[in-house]
Design a protein around this nucleic acid. Structure first.
Lengths: 130, 130
DNA sequence: CTGTATTCCTATTTGTACAGTAGGATAACT
DNA sequence: AGTTATCCTACTGTACAAATAGGAATACAG
C-alpha cells in the first residue's frame, strides 16, 4: 500500500528505485521486492532493469483503488475466507455475517483511489504549514 | 459466536452444558471453556456450577449484537490495530483507511443481533422443508 | 566488452495471533 | 461422599504475514 502510494507520489515519468522507496517508507528493500513482484505480475506497474531502472505506475493514480492493490498484495480481503466445502447448516448463519462484512469492506476499499490518498497527504502537509 | 448462538437457540430457562454445545457445534469443550470465560466476565452469561449446571444468556437474544460478542472473544475488530505511537506522517494516510474500515465493520456487526441470527436459522430450516 | 546497478527469483526464518490440548482446582447438587 | 459441572492456568500446534538472505538475470555506461 505504502509502496504504491510512494510510486504515485513520485510519479514523474522517471522510474523509481526500490532502494529509495525503502528509505522513505522505512521498509526493507528485500520485502518490497516481493510485494512489487505481485503488483508487477498483476500489470499494475512497469519495471525497468539495470542502472537508472526502477518502477513506474502503468496508469494514473485515480485508476488504482485500494481494493485492487490489497487484493493483490494480501490474499483475500475477507476476515475469514469463506470455504464452500464447509457450507453446511452449522456455518450457514456465520457465513451470512462474513458476506455482509465482505460487502462492507469492499465498499470502502473500492471507493478509495491512490489519487484520494495523494490528496490526503496534501491536506496533512498543509496542516503543518498553518 | 456459534457458542452464543447455541445458547440463544436453547434459551429455555434451563442452563445449557458446555458438553452439549461442544457436541452440537463440533468444537472442543476445553476451547469453549476459555471462550465462555470471557463472556462470563463480560457479564453476558450466567453460570451455574455443579450437576444440572451450565450457562444461560442473561438478557434476551435481541440485546446482544455480533459486535458486542466479537469484541469480547476476539480482541479488536479492526484488521490492523491502530497504534497511536506510530501515528507519524508516514502512516497518516493508511490510518485514515483503517478508520473508514473500522467504521464500516462496526456498522455491520453492531446491527446484527442474536435474534437476527436465530431468524436466519429458521429460514434455513424452512428451506429444507419446502 | 566489462563493471555496476538494478530487477528478479526462490528458500528460509521469525513473529504473532488464533485454535486447540491438558491437568487439575473449585463449587454445588443428590 | 461422590459425581457433575464450571473454573483456572499453562502449554502446544498451526497458519500466515513480515522479514531476511543469497544469488541469478538483465541492461545501461563507459
Amino acid at each position: 500500500m505504502l509502496l504504491m502510494l510512494d510510486l504515485a507520489t513520485y510519479n514523474t515519468g522517471e522510474p523509481v528505485r526500490l532502494r529509495d522507496v525503502a528509505k522513505r517508507q522505512q521498509i526493507s528493500e528485500k520485502y518490497l521486492e516481493q510485494i512489487i513482484s505481485l503488483l508487477n505480475k498483476a500489470g499494475f506497474v512497469r519495471s525497468i532493469r539495470g542502472p537508472q531502472g526502477g518502477y513506474m505506475l502503468k496508469k494514473p493514480p485515480e485508476q488504482y483503488t485500494v481494493g485492487m492493490i490489497l487484493r493483490q498484495t494480501e490474499g483475500s480481503l475477507a476476515p475469514v475466507v469463506y470455504d464452500d466445502a464447509n457450507s453446511n447448516e452449522r456455518e450457514f448463519v456465520t457465513a451470512r455475517i462474513w458476506t455482509q462484512l465482505e460487502e462492507a469492506i469492499n465498499n470502502v476499499v473500492d471507493h478509495i483511489t491512490l489519487k484520494d490518498m495523494l490528496e490526503w497527504q496534501e491536506e496533512q502537509i498543509n496542516q503543518y504549514i498553518i
